[in-house]
């Protein structure tokens, strides 16, 4: 009787222990990694400027990069070619309105993020941060969203107010933090 109840206690204890281990589902096989090792992949830019790297660029510098690496698809002066135009656009009215940078994009930071991660189409991730800043400045300037001699950097880019910033309605507010 004594032995049995002890056994029972041992079984209960073992079950409790295994339940505790089971609640920590992970086998913990992920390998820790340092910020320096992450840096080459750490390319997300948020609307408040989080993630923007050191460096800067001007529209004039961007125009030179654009002619060399972008105009083949997006046309001279961003007017469009085999790929979308980057300049101009009418106010958004309905689903047939063209979603241009000036008419639709809510945040200028998306320009830097997308150019750096995805462009040029045939050689993504080949641009330096300086080149990405310069291209961002050039496109914003073409659209008269900044002046022709303004400099774009980590401080100035988040402050560029895009015309359609408030043109959106969150579809599922209860699922959106």
């Amino acid at each position: 009787m004594y032995t049995r109840s002890l056994c029972g206690f041992a079984v209960t204890f073992a079950l409790a222990l295994s339940a505790m281990v089971a609640s920590a589902q992970s086998p913990n096989l992920g390998k820790p990694i340092s910020p320096a090792e992450i840096a080459p992949w750490d390319i997300n830019i948020l609307p408040d400027g989080t993630g923007l790297p050191p460096g800067s660029g001007t529209p004039a510098e961007g125009a030179r990069v654009y002619s060399a690496k972008c105009s083949v698809c997006h046309g001279q002066d961003g007017k469009g070619g085999t790929s979308t135009r980057l300049v101009g656009g009418e106010p958004i009215k309905n689903m047939e309105s063209e979603k241009t940078i000036a008419s639709f994009w809510p945040y200028a930071t998306t320009l830097f993020d997308y150019i750096r991660r995805a462009m040029p189409w045939r050689q993504p991730r080949s641009l330096t941060n300086e080149e990405v800043y310069a291209l961002t400045a050039y496109i914003l300037s073409l659209n008269k969203l900044i002046g022709e001699s303004e400099t774009i950097n980590a401080l100035t880019l988040p402050k560029v107010r895009m015309p359609n910033r408030d043109g959106f309605i969150v579809r599922f507010p209860d699922r959106t933090p």
Binding site: N44, N94, Y114
Partner: peptide
């Protein structure tokens, strides 16, 4: 992040010009 695909592409325009 307001990435390209959420800020621009997958934001359907409604009658009147606002977008989801």
């Amino acid at each position: 992040g307001m990435t390209f695909y959420e800020a621009r592409t997958y934001a359907p325009i409604l009658p009147g010009g606002k977008a989801y």
